[in-house]
Amino acid sequence: MLDRDEDILKAAEDWQKAGHGVALATVVETWGSAPRPAGSNLVINDDGTFLGSVSGGCVEGAVVTEALDVISSGTPKMLEFGVADETAWNVGLSCGGTIRVFVEKVG
């Protein structure tokens, strides 16, 4: 995608350098009418602050929770959200799409 996002990757770098635990979440696959294209980033730090978007607001809450987990474990995770998934429905990806989000620790 064209690089028109606010500079969230720079924020991730700055957080990490300032001593925060940081995770990077990236949309890697989409099916149906997913709100954000593959390549979209969300960055999260260890006090729960996040910037960017992987779904236009639908599943960010759940991604942040998982990201905090990844920050403490250091092990990357693949998350999937879709309408067929009861949990995803609860957190609200109601647009009919399915997305897969890769969450990794920075550093």
């Binding site: 690089d3 990757l9 770098e13 990490q16 350098k17 990077l24 990794e104 620790k105 920075v106 550093g107």
Partner: peptide, 13 residues
């Protein structure tokens, strides 16, 4: 992502 990789991505951007 390694910090060095992230820094490189940011520098190129």
């Amino acid at each position: 992502m390694k910090l060095a990789t992230l820094a490189e991505v940011n520098a190129e951007r």
